[in-house]
Design a protein around this nucleic acid. Sequence first.
DNA 1: GAAAATTTGCAACATTATAACATATGCAAA
DNA 2: TTTGCATATGTTATAATGTTGCAAATTTTC
Lengths: 163, 163
Amino acid sequence: MSANALPYRPHNHDACVSRALADARAICQQNNARLTPTRERVLELIWQSHKPLGAYDVLAVLAEDGHNAAPPTVYRALDFLQQHGLVHRIASLNSFVGCTHAGENHNGLFLICRQCSNVLELTAPAVASAVSEAASAEAFRPEDVTIEVAGLCPRCQADAGND
Amino acid sequence: MSANALPYRPHNHDACVSRALADARAICQQNNARLTPTRERVLELIWQSHKPLGAYDVLAVLAEDGHNAAPPTVYRALDFLQQHGLVHRIASLNSFVGCTHAGENHNGLFLICRQCSNVLELTAPAVASAVSEAASAEAFRPEDVTIEVAGLCPRCQADAGND
DNA sequence: GAAAATTTGCAACATTATAACATATGCAAA
DNA sequence: TTTGCATATGTTATAATGTTGCAAATTTTC
Ligand SMILES: [Zn+2]
Ligand SMILES: [Zn+2]
Ligand SMILES: [Zn+2]
Ligand SMILES: [Zn+2]
């Protein structure tokens, strides 16, 4: 009965990909950074779905492409994309997902479904400020905040029998 | 000028270790779980300091002990300790730290100093409820929440020149 | 004390990530 | 235009982290 967010309902995912690539091109131009073919291809692959993808998964697809790539190629592309805020690494899964708030200077909070693997990235100001206060109370100066919530997405809750 | 938490000031760390081991014995007894010598030794090693320790670091010390251990020994002990809430895994570091709230049924928030590596575990109800609300707003059912804050602890801020 | 369950030992293997160095490419001045 | 520089990529090897599967040993239960 709720207005489900994108990954949780059928949608024209090609539009997601196109938008992500267009945003990336704009952001890189603005930053004077070079979105080379390899980097763009890796970003496109990461955006294949809203499920995070491992570096070696990306590598495998590149191989299918006929691209003769080794791990450093992928990790370097992913580093670049992360640095420009185009993808995020999900620490609890050792994998990568496209950023849905590119260019917004945000700290993501990730809702990760343990069933279907889809990830929803949120910006949650209330969470950010609560974390900030908790850190302040200990005189700790935060620089990088990782918030990953594993659980069941609305769709998978329904599938599992609504208990 | 603030009342620094434990890891950030000199303290009798042997007391930390003793308390952790005593708590562990009590909790395991209560849970009908067996804190075998290997498990207890691994817990003790994890508690060597307030800095997280990698599984292979633990393994190396076991080897020095003369204990003929392989990776599964360590990972199994760590799994056991995690299941009983005696240690936590820090996803962003692939390493493990002793739980300072054992037996309290908590979701930890970890403040991780990038300089000295010390970790302070907090229970931050305000953060927990903010996360819970953010998830609810998306109809997501959280099961496991990871919150890791990297930054500078008060001590290392001071050392770095108080800017 | 025998049967069942749990724990450990052990070997091999799988996955994720980085180091080091060579080559190539784009870009800007001379 | 070519020289030089910074950036990006290719390539090989290796490091670091984590798992599977099965056999032996230990502990618990009956
Ligand atoms: Zn989509
Ligand atoms: Zn993002
Ligand atoms: Zn201590
Ligand atoms: Zn804890």
